[in-house]
């Protein structure tokens, strides 16, 4: 479980996160949703410590991450897998080497075992026979999937995915959503997914946090989000026509 307590974050004058409080439980897919620029990525980066928070605290299963020394933080980070919004693959390494990278750094596995593990992870994101390409030779969607494979390589306790299926075709997006759901339940991970894809929200949102202008505006489940009458949420959720239709259908029943 990850707890966020009273987090504030400024960039210069801009007050980007305003007193965020949230609990993300293990074995659940937690979503952070919100409009572009609302502060979703910054929230995730504050939680993993890539941005220092101005005030407030982050707790990983009760361990106070905010107060930790650099070296203690490293131990927690070895339990974190993260997919970045821009994939952030190492561009001098091949696909396979990218996925193997955390294994080579932190495990005692033999080369063969690492390769096996890398192939297993790549297989789970539907990527076969691309092992020897460089990231620059892969499409954006492929890079996303490699990023996910790398994030899950170490079997993390905490998984962060920043827009895992933006830029993917609907079919692959569903594969990725299902993968995230499966591994979260299977390994009882604490998973935090940032998204603005309503399909994912309906598909995998066990617990949803809606961020609006740097504030936690609403939180609830996927069932609740379809029924709420909060104006900002409805503007966000029913921006697409097909969602309006769903709402009408729900209304009739």
């Amino acid at each position: 479980m990850i707890e966020v307590v009273g987090v504030n974050k400024h960039f210069g004058e801009a007050h980007v996160l305003r007193d965020i409080n949230a609990k993300f439980s293990a074995g659940k897919v937690n979503l952070i949703i919100g409009a572009s620029g609302s502060g979703k990525s910054v929230t995730a980066k504050c939680i993993v410590g890539l941005h220092e928070v101005d005030t407030g605290q982050i707790l990983y299963d009760g361990r106070n991450f905010t107060e930790m020394e650099r070296n203690d933080r490293k131990e927690i980070r070895k339990e974190i897998g993260m997919l970045f919004q821009g994939s952030a693959l190492f561009d001098s390494l091949t696909v396979e080497q990218n996925v193997m990278f955390p294994l080579t750094m932190f495990t005692e596995m033999s080369r063969e075992e690492m390769r096996e593990r890398a192939n297993f992870c790549l297989d789970r994101v539907n990527l076969n026979n691309k092992n020897h390409l460089l990231p620059a030779e892969c499409s954006g969607g492929m890079q996303k999937r490699i990023g996910i494979a790398r994030a899950i390589a170490m079997n993390p306790k905490y998984l962060f995915c920043d827009e895992p299926n933006s830029g993917l075709d609907p079919k692959t997006a569903i594969v990725i959503d299902n993968l995230i759901k499966e591994i979260t339940y299977e390994y009882q991970m604490t998973t935090i997914v940032i998204t603005h894809d309503m399909n994912s929200v309906i598909e995998i949102g066990d617990h949803i946090i809606f961020i609006h202008q740097g504030q936690k505006w609403w939180e609830g489940t996927k069932e609740e989000i379809l029924k709420t009458d909060n104006q900002e949420i409805n503007d966000f959720v029913y921006a697409a026509d097909f969602m309006k239709e769903i709402k009408e259908m729900l209304g009739k029943h």
């Binding site: 980070r77 970045f84 750094m105």
Partner: peptide, 10 residues
């Protein structure tokens, strides 16, 4: 963000 990715891995 490749440097961030390294840091996240520890």
């Amino acid at each position: 963000e490749q440097i961030d990715a390294l840091e996240i891995m520890g």
